[in-house]
Nucleic acid binder design. Structure first.
Length: 572
RNA sequence: CGGGGCGUGGCGCAGCUUGGUAGCGCGCAUCGUUCGGGACGAUGAGGUCGGAGGUUCAAAUCCUCUCGCCCCGACCA
């Protein structure tokens, strides 16, 4: 491809809106353009990267027996009513009516469509198992998109679905995906850590997320310093030992002015935060008011809380008036005196004697509160966040916390969709059984962005060869001074073009100064920069620069030609 | 949804406080010179100042409403 003809432009200045390197560089180098919040166009260069990522995924999924197909983006709402998700999912699902006034939705994912196809097509156990997948657009109206391409509302995802006779089959398909994902991320140049994760709105019994470590990641991972334990903090169990038993002391109200935070309270009382109980007021999506009690030295884990009380529709912090309406007091909140509420107490609180809790009265706390004696929780469960340095649930060593970006996930769905939709097969035993499903996703754009996060420098993009839009960037310098430069450059370009894909090389044939061409070549980030100039010709051929290392050498025209024709792995 | 910020030519920005003919850098076009690290000169094109309403003799500037985008949080896979 000649740069003089490529649909792109590079920007000298950083766009004001772009903060993350991936966002900034992909905009500046002319790979993508933003259309709206969380909605992007892929320009030809960006599209080629995306297609190459797609190809890596395709190859590895085909290798585990995946069959590629395509499912629609627009679905009848009835299908989502059948699974129940039409009612469970909030405004993040786009809903509209067609001209005949039928309710329609934009696909957020495709479990329903798969289950619908299964009930239509699968009759016998002989047709199982199989894995189907597609690359398709999803729309999720996230309340907030951020970080450029990392978190968008419209995106292409590879989603695959395993369909099995039983749990054992699902298990095999699940781990086959696990292995395929490991190979995919390796090939993409992404260090991906598989972590155990919450099953979330997908339901199911087992799930892993493949995480790319990044400070801007929205998930917190719990990683063991010693062993290979790795989990999303949303589900990492708390392993903190119960404090030593104490005799319960009489409960006592104390005046504690202006101590609306745990820190202020602990300082005022002269006690460690671990001797306090913190009340967090939440409202569930299904309308319940929750008083969650964790120890003062811990934070509430909303995912654990959600699971502990089987809340649907998520959870939000309660508003002040909602708290007051139930006779409780923000800043001095307490389970004692809670009414019209679900009281959920963290397991560790239940084992910690004589804690200082709020009195539900401004300026007052209660000393020596004890679960069971002073109040009776509706639920006792592990609802607190693991902290850095806590003990690993696996080996007991210290855990560390890191932020991560989810670049892929695998879920054991089981029969969560096939039962409600009636996707069954007739087994060898002559009985009807629901098909057992798994669901596995990888977001293309997010992976592209993470590849950039992992592979760039101050000059620009540095694509791994596996996903680079072109293997090489050919730069002609001083073409109007020395006709041989044009001659050789054109000859190299023709050699690349002649071997099938006319796009083996990006050829900067523009009438630009050397500085512009070099700067753009580095910004665009092809793995090899091939410079033809009077100087290189005098030295015996083409100057070959490896983008990643900056290593330069002069190579013969024959050698470079062999590379461009695919006969040599590298030009140097 | 809460908090904060920003909308002025393709990109980055000034002008707004104190109303008075819309500016700068880069980019773009043409010509010439240049050609191994974002060249130089000359000439030129390009903007309903996000939108609507209002105040005023006069609005980019003041007021009201509204739309959009970014960041933090809530939220979400």
């Amino acid at each position: 491809m000649r740069l003089s003809n490529l649909f792109f432009t590079t920007l000298r200045d950083d766009p004001a809106d772009a903060e993350m390197p991936s966002h900034r560089l992909l905009l500046r180098a002319g790979y993508v353009r933003q259309l709206g919040a969380g909605i992007y166009s892929l320009l030809p260069l960006g599209f080629r990267v995306s297609k190459r990522v797609e190809q890596v995924i395709r190859e590895e999924l085909n290798a585990i027996g995946g069959q590629e197909m395509e499912m629609p983006v627009v679905h009848p709402a009835d299908l989502w009513r059948e699974s129940g998700r039409y009612f469970k999912i909030g405004p993040e699902m786009a809903r509209f009516k067609d001209r005949a006034d039928r309710d329609m939705v934009l696909a957020m994912t495709h479990e329903e469509v798969v289950a619908d196809l299964l009930r239509d097509i699968v009759r016998s156990y002989r047709q199982l198992p199989f894995i189907i997948y597609h690359f398709q657009t999803k729309f999720r109206d996230e309340p907030r998109s951020r970080g450029g391409l990392i978190r968008v509302r419209e995106f292409v995802m590879k989603d695959s679905y395993s369909c099995d006779r039983d749990e054992a089959g699902l298990d095999a398909a699940y781990w086959a995906h696990h292995r395929a994902y490991t190979r995919i991320f390796e090939r993409l140049g992404l260090k991906a850590i598989p972590v155990s994760s919450d099953v979330g709105m997908m339901g199911g019994s087992l799930a892993h997320e493949f995480m790319f470590l990044h400070p801007a990641g929205e998930d917190v991972l719990v990683l063991c310093e010693k062993c290979d334990y790795a989990a999303n903090r949303q589900i990492a169990p708390l392993t903190v030992a119960a404090p030593e038993a104490e005799d319960p002391l009489p409960m006592e109200e104390v005046h504690t002015p202006e101590t609306t935070t745990i820190d202020a309270l602990a300082t005022f009382m002269g006690i460690p935060t671990s001797k306090t109980a913190k009340a967090v007021f939440m409202v569930t999506g299904d309308g319940r008011f929750v008083v969650a009690i964790v120890r003062g030295d811990f934070e509430l884990n909303e995912t654990k809380l959600t699971n502990a009380i089987k809340a649907t529709g998520g959870m939000r912090p309660a508003q002040l008036d909602e708290i007051l309406a139930r006779g409780m007091q923000a800043g001095y909140g307490s389970p004692i005196g809670a009414r019209d509420s679900v009281v959920v107490v963290d397991s560790l609180v239940a084992k910690s004697p004589n804690l200082v809790a709020g009195a539900n009265k401004p300026g007052y706390h209660l000393k020596n509160t004890n679960v069971g004696r002073d109040y009776t929780p509706d639920v006792v469960a592990d609802i607190a966040n693991v902290r850095e340095g806590d003990a690993c649930p696996n080996c007991g060593s210290r855990v560390i916390l890191r932020n991560g970006i989810e670049i892929g996930n695998i879920f054991k769905l089981g029969t969560d969709f096939t039962v409600p939709l009636g996707a069954e097969y007739l087994g060898e035993d002559g009985e009807r059984h629901p098909i057992v499903m798994g669901s596995y996703g990888i977001g293309l754009g997010r992976n592209v962005a993470c590849i950039v996060e992992a592979h760039h420098d101050e000059k620009g993009l540095v694509w791994p060869a596996e996903v680079a839009p072109y293997p090489a960037h050919l730069v002609a310098i001083g073409a109007n001074k020395d006709p041989r430069v044009t001659e050789v450059a054109e000859q190299l370009y023709a050699a690349a073009a002649a071997c099938g894909d006319a796009s083996q090389v990006l050829y900067d044939d523009r009438n630009e100064s050397p500085g512009v061409k070099f700067t753009d070549a580095e910004l665009l980030g092809m793995p090899w920069i091939l410079t033809v100039s009077s100087r290189s010709l005098a030295a015996g051929g083409v100057e070959v620069t490896e983008r990643a290392t900056g290593a330069r050498s002069i190579q013969s025209i024959e050698q470079v030609t062999a590379f461009l024709e695919g006969r040599a792995a590298t030009p140097a």
